[in-house]
C-alpha cells in the first residue's frame, strides 16, 4: 500500500507557527481525553448503543479545521464524530450529555453518539449511514455556490465509505458544477474488520476522483502539519471557484471500530507500533519542546485545563436528567404538524 512512513525525513515540511502548534496540541489533547472518558463511561453503562472513538485520528480534523474558516465553512461527517464537534467549538458538555442520552445533550438526548448537529457552528452531523454524508456535504457545497457566500463544504468519510455508489454520483455533480466541496477521506486502514486492500480494487483512494477530473492527494494524516498544509491547498482551490478537491488522509484508529469490536483483524503489534512511532499528539509535543514553544509546566497546565473540561462534561452528562417523556412526540415535524 502506498503509505509513507512518517519517520522518513520529509522534504520541505510546511511548518506551523508557534500559536498553531500550541493550539493543535490543545485541540488534539481535548479530543484524546474526551474520547478516553467516553470509553470509560461506555464501560460503566452510562453510554449505550454504538460509540465510535476518534483516538489516533485527531490530527485530521484538527489540521483541516485550522485551515478552514471555522464557524463559516460547513463540515459534515459520519458516526465517528465527537472529535469534529470538539474542534469546531461545540460544547463538550452538550456532546457528552448526548452520549449519555440526557436532556442537556446537543440533540436533547434524542440523537445519540452518531447524531449531533449545530447550525450555529455549521456542523451538519453526525450521520449513521455510511456514505450518506458525501451527498449531503455536496449539497452543502451547492448551497454555498448558490448563495455565493464564499464558504466551502468539507465532507469527511472513511476508506470503507469511499466505496459507496453515492460518493461517485456526488463527485460527478461536484465537478460538473464546480462546487466548493472538499472531500476528506479518513483512511484509517479498516472499515470495521475489512482492510482497505480487501475492499478496494484501487487502494490509493486519492485517485478516486481522476475520472471525474477531480484532483486528489495522499497526505500523512498523523502529522498535523501535513494535514493543515494540504487542507489549505484544497480549501483554497474550492473557495476560489475551481471546484472540488480530494484529500486522502492516511491515519489510524487505535481503538476498535466501535466499543464492541474484538479487533481480531489486526495485530496488537500493528497498533502499538502506530502509537509508538506515529502518534499525532506526541509528534506535536516533541516539536513544541524542541523549539521551546512550551516547557513541561506549560504541558502540565494544558493537561490540567483539559482534564477539568472533560471532567466537567462527564459530571454534567452523568447528573443531567433524561429528556421529559413529552419529548417523545416533539420534533417530528416543524410547526407542530402531526400525523
Amino acid at each position: 500500500m502506498a503509505r509513507k512512513p512518517a519517520d522518513k525525513p520529509k522534504a520541505n515540511i510546511p511548518e506551523l507557527t508557534k500559536d498553531q502548534e500550541l493550539a493543535a496540541f490543545r485541540d488534539m489533547l481535548l479530543i484524546r481525553r474526551f474520547e478516553e472518558k467516553a470509553g470509560q463511561m461506555y464501560g460503566m453503562g452510562l453510554i449505550g448503543g454504538f460509540c465510535h472513538l476518534y483516538i489516533g485520528q485527531e490530527a485530521v480534523v484538527t489540521g483541516v479545521t485550522m485551515a478552514s474558516h471555522k464557524g463559516k465553512d460547513a463540515q459534515i461527517t459520519g458516526y465517528r464524530d465527537h472529535g469534529h464537534m470538539l474542534v469546531m467549538g461545540l460544547d463538550p458538555k452538550g456532546v457528552m450529555a448526548e452520549l449519555t442520552g440526557r436532556q442537556g445533550g446537543l440533540s436533547k438526548g434524542k440523537g445519540g453518539s452518531m447524531h449531533m448537529f449545530s447550525n450555529e457552528h455549521r456542523f451538519y452531523g453526525g450521520n449513521g449511514i455510511v456514505g450518506a454524508q458525501v451527498s449531503l456535504g455536496t449539497g452543502l457545497a451547492f448551497a454555498s455556490k448558490y448563495r455565493g457566500d464564499n464558504t466551502v463544504s468539507i465532507s469527511y468519510f472513511g476508506d470503507g465509505a469511499s466505496n459507496q455508489g453515492q460518493v461517485y454520483e456526488s463527485f460527478n455533480m461536484a465537478k460538473l458544477w464546480n462546487l466548493p466541496a472538499v472531500y476528506i477521506i479518513e483512511n484509517n486502514r479498516y472499515g470495521m474488520g475489512t482492510a482497505v486492500t480487501r475492499a478496494s480494487g484501487q487502494p490509493n483512494l486519492s485517485l478516486r476522483g481522476v475520472s471525474f477530473g477531480i484532483e486528489g492527494e495522499q497526505v500523512d494524516g498523523m502529522d498535523v502539519r501535513m494535514v493543515h498544509d494540504a487542507a489549505k491547498r484544497a480549501i483554497e482551490h474550492a473557495r476560489s471557484g475551481k471546484g472540488p478537491y480530494i484529500l486522502e488522509m492516511l491515519t489510524y484508529r487505535y481503538r476498535g471500530h466501535s466499543m464492541s469490536d474484538p479487533a481480531k483483524y489486526r495485530s496488537k503489534d500493528e497498533v502499538s507500533t502506530m502509537r509508538a512511532e506515529h502518534d499525532p499528539i506526541e509528534q506535536v509535543k516533541a516539536r513544541i519542546l524542541d523549539k521551546r514553544y512550551g516547557d513541561e509546566d506549560w504541558f502540565k497546565a494544558v493537561e490540567a485545563e483539559i482534564r477539568a473540561i472533560v471532567t466537567e462534561a462527564a459530571d454534567f452528562a452523568t447528573a443531567d436528567t433524561e429528556p421529559a417523556p413529552a419529548e417523545l412526540y416533539t420534533d417530528v415535524y416543524v410547526d407542530g404538524l402531526g400525523a
Binding site: 448503543g49 448526548e98 442520552g101 434524542k110 433524561e322 417523556p325 419529548e327 412526540y329 417530528v332
Partner: peptide
C-alpha cells in the same frame, strides 16, 4: 411502536 423516529435516550426509547 410509537409514531416517531427512534429516540436514543434510554427512557424515551422504552416509551417508543
Amino acid at each position: 411502536g410509537k409514531d416517531v423516529p427512534m429516540p436514543y435516550a434510554a427512557n424515551l426509547e422504552k416509551l417508543a
